[in-house]
Computed example of a mutant assay.
Amino acid sequence: MSINRQIHLVSRPAGEPTADNFRLVEAPLPAVQDGQVLVRNHYLSLDPYMRGRMNDSKSYAEPQPLNQVMLGGTVGEVVESRNPHFKPGDQVVGMGGWQEYQLVDASQRGVLQKVDTTHIPLAAYLGAVGMPGVTAWYGLTQIINPKAGETVVVSAASGAVGTAVGQLAKARGARAVGIAGGPDKCRYVVEELGFDACIDYKEHRDLKSLSAALKQACPNGIDGHFENVGGMILDAVMLRANAFSRIAMCGMISGYNGEPIPMMAPQLILVNRMKIEGFIVSEHMQLWPEALKELGMMVATGKLKYRETIAEGLAAAPEAFLGLLKGRNFGKQLVKLV
């Protein structure tokens, strides 16, 4: 237990990232000092937002520093503690990054949270009962705020955020329509998660075709849209949007490698008196307890279903992350370390 293996970002990607942007390094584990806690990370979270932080450009978060551990959410177990609030064996969630161990000054409020794994699996605290779940909850309840009978569309519907958006919309009596890539993902979204319909965007390569598919899936138009992708998908949704529709802007993965993302018909924002609001879930921490209470209850009782894609071992993290950006994952992408 004297060596800690880590993945560092060693260069900034020019366009699409590659495995060469990362390096696996070994670092000695420092001794645990007063107030500190040593955590053995069991799972680390891979998320699309990490792509934006790899760039050295102005954004809502500081860029990922070079030659340091890749930042990211983790769950694990306390193995050594010199802090009265934590003891060995405690299951915790934090931002441990892409490494096997994390040494935390646990006197800082909120850097580590104890979690109960009696009814909720540890890994779920990185997905349905973690940041992706709260992201879905916030965008749906605070921005879209669907009424019973309204139609809500979500792009990347089979991902960690999208799966939760649709199920939370259904729980509120709305109609849920997903957009996902491939027949397997669409089948899962409808048959397993209970969405009313799902459109395979790989079958609709142009705007006219995608818009026609949305018209068929949303005969009463679109009242709310949860956007993870942008580009042609957003254009197609806007063509079918109702008056006073709401769009929660969560991600624009179609432009993460620097591609331009023009909007075809911005006049529809005015014509339809649409509300389009971007949000960063970490800026709304006051609502996390309310969100996590609902999400935790739904997962514990089987009312919120989720799926995970798990890569084995720290060395697999870079390739798993590159696959996530190309939509190869199904549900929440995790790396299992233990």
Rank of each mutant, 00 (worst) to 15 (best):
Q6W: 06
Q6I: 10
Q6D: 10
L9T: 08
G15Y: 14
G15A: 11
E16T: 15
F22D: 07
F22C: 09
V25N: 06
V25R: 06
E26L: 08
A27D: 13
L29S: 11
G35Y: 10
Q36F: 09
D47Y: 08
P48M: 12
R51E: 07
N55P: 00
D56A: 15
Y60H: 12
A61K: 13
E62G: 02
Q68V: 00
M70L: 03
V75M: 01
E77A: 02
V79C: 10
E80S: 11
E80P: 04
P84Y: 03
H85V: 03
K87Q: 14
V93I: 14
G96R: 09
G97Y: 06
Y101F: 13
L103G: 06
D105R: 10
A106E: 08
S107R: 15
R109E: 15
V111H: 05
T117R: 13
T117N: 12
A123F: 07
L126F: 05
G130D: 12
A136W: 12
Y138N: 09
L140G: 09
I143R: 01
P146F: 05
A157G: 14
G159L: 04
G159A: 07
G162N: 05
G162C: 05
V165A: 04
G166Q: 06
Q167M: 01
A169H: 02
G173W: 00
A174Q: 00
R175T: 01
A176P: 00
V177Q: 04
I179A: 03
G181W: 10
G182N: 12
Y188D: 14
V189K: 11
V189G: 12
V189E: 10
E192C: 08
D196K: 01
D196E: 01
A197N: 09
C198Q: 08
C198F: 11
I199P: 06
E203W: 08
D206C: 14
S209N: 06
L210Q: 10
S211W: 06
A212K: 14
A213Q: 12
L214T: 08
L214E: 11
I222C: 04
H225I: 04
F226Q: 11
V229P: 08
G231I: 09
G231D: 12
L234Y: 03
D235K: 12
A236G: 13
L239D: 15
R246D: 02
I247W: 00
M249Q: 15
G258T: 04
E259H: 02
I261W: 05
A265C: 07
I269E: 01
I269M: 10
V271Y: 11
R273L: 09
I276M: 14
I276Q: 02
I280M: 13
S282N: 10
H284K: 06
L287V: 15
G296I: 04
V299H: 08
K303I: 01
A311C: 06
A311D: 02
E312G: 04
E312T: 09
A317I: 00
E319Q: 07
E319H: 00
F321G: 00
L324E: 03
L325F: 08
G327P: 08
R328I: 00
Q333A: 08
Q333F: 01
V335T: 02
